[in-house]
Computed example of a mutant assay.
Amino acid sequence: MRKVSFAVFGGPEVLRLVDAEEPHAGPGQIRVAVRAAGVNPVDWRIREGQFQEAHPVELPSGVGLDAAGVVDEVGAGIEGVEVGDHVFGEGSSTYAEFAVLSAWIHMPEGLTFEEAAGYPSVMETALRVIHEVGVRPGQTLLVSGASGGVGSAVLQIARDRGIRVIGTAGATNQDYLRDLGAVATPYGEGWVERVRRLGRVDAALDLAGSGVIRELVELTGDPRKVVSIADLGAPEFGVRFSGVAGSVPEALAETVGLISRGRLHIPVERSYTLAEAAKAHTDSQAGHTRGRRVIVI
């Protein structure tokens, strides 16, 4: 089968499309014929070796955590899923024609493979950081970098829970944030004062890693009310860096529930082929995403 792999840590250029042996489902796992794989910032952070100390990767390594596809192998001890079922979930080395998933759920009616591939890690992360930052219904959450995949999920989860959101993003994404229920304001000089004029901020999330931790602490008045998923230097300000995944099965179940109720939709901004994985990473690192990027097999 074909899969994307890297043998050394580095930039997008280290990614290679190679021929590899097909993986097989072990106990508690399933294998899918991948139809689409989600592109997440964690993918290129792993490729660069940023998480090597906390989560070592053995080289050469595949790429990707999220996938949607057709079940074609079921491991021992698995019930409730059969060969031929359409599922999406999380596993490893998902930029490939076949991948093994350790957490999955059946795709709800009307969801495409491309759309489904964009949800697993994004929703797990969004649900986790909303919990960790401790924001409650009726309070105001400031989201820095609100137009990407995680931001899009956070805004819609917050809206469903009765949490007011102030979202920052580029000038071209202001209407997008408003459509998702946020009070939108652009990046750039004077953004802190613009946020102040929009009212009290009870908690804040840094989703872009754009060097705003100090300002988020200033706006909330408490570093314990700020969580970052993108700035490894956040702990220097007393801010929590959230990098340990919670329950993926629970996140997938909540995802399907929100989609089924018409309360969640994250658009696919752009699709790539396996051969374009390096371009997908380059674009992901550049930021300014509106929704999700996926690789289509």
Rank of each mutant, 00 (worst) to 15 (best):
A7I: 02
G64N: 10
S121G: 06
G188I: 11
I297S: 07
E79L: 09
E58F: 01
S102C: 08
F9V: 07
P249G: 06
I213R: 00
R2W: 11
A286V: 05
D231C: 01
F6Y: 15
G257S: 12
V165P: 02
V268A: 02
T168S: 13
L15V: 07
V70W: 01
S93C: 12
G199E: 05
S242V: 04
E250Y: 02
G257P: 01
R164F: 03
R293E: 12
G64Y: 11
V192F: 04
E254V: 02
S284K: 04
T112H: 10
V42G: 05
V294R: 10
D202P: 03
Q139A: 12
H281M: 09
V18A: 12
P223Y: 08
W191E: 10
L219K: 09
G209V: 10
G188P: 01
P23W: 03
G77S: 11
V32C: 03
P235D: 04
S5T: 14
A103I: 00
R2Q: 15
A251V: 02
H288G: 05
G149Q: 05
V129H: 03
A286F: 12
D66V: 03
R292C: 05
R224S: 15
V71Q: 06
I229F: 07
G38Q: 11
P56Y: 07
L216Y: 06
R196E: 15
V81G: 03
L219W: 08
A54C: 00
I266P: 08
V135D: 11
Y187P: 00
L177V: 05
G145T: 14
S210K: 14
R47F: 01
S152P: 03
R136N: 13
V129R: 14
T185C: 13
I30E: 05
A253H: 12
F88A: 07
G145H: 05
S260G: 13
E21C: 00
G238F: 11
I46T: 13
P137N: 12
V100N: 12
E189I: 03
E13P: 07
V63N: 05
G190A: 06
I213C: 00
S152N: 11
S102A: 01
Y95W: 08
E22K: 15
A208T: 04
R164I: 06
E82S: 15
G110Y: 07
L205D: 05
L127P: 06
V256H: 01
T112E: 11
V63R: 10
D231T: 14
R45I: 00
A67Y: 14
L142C: 10
D202N: 14
V81K: 09
A234K: 04
V226P: 05
L65V: 02
D179M: 11
G262L: 11
S247W: 09
D202G: 09
R2A: 01
P267A: 07
I297E: 08
K279A: 15
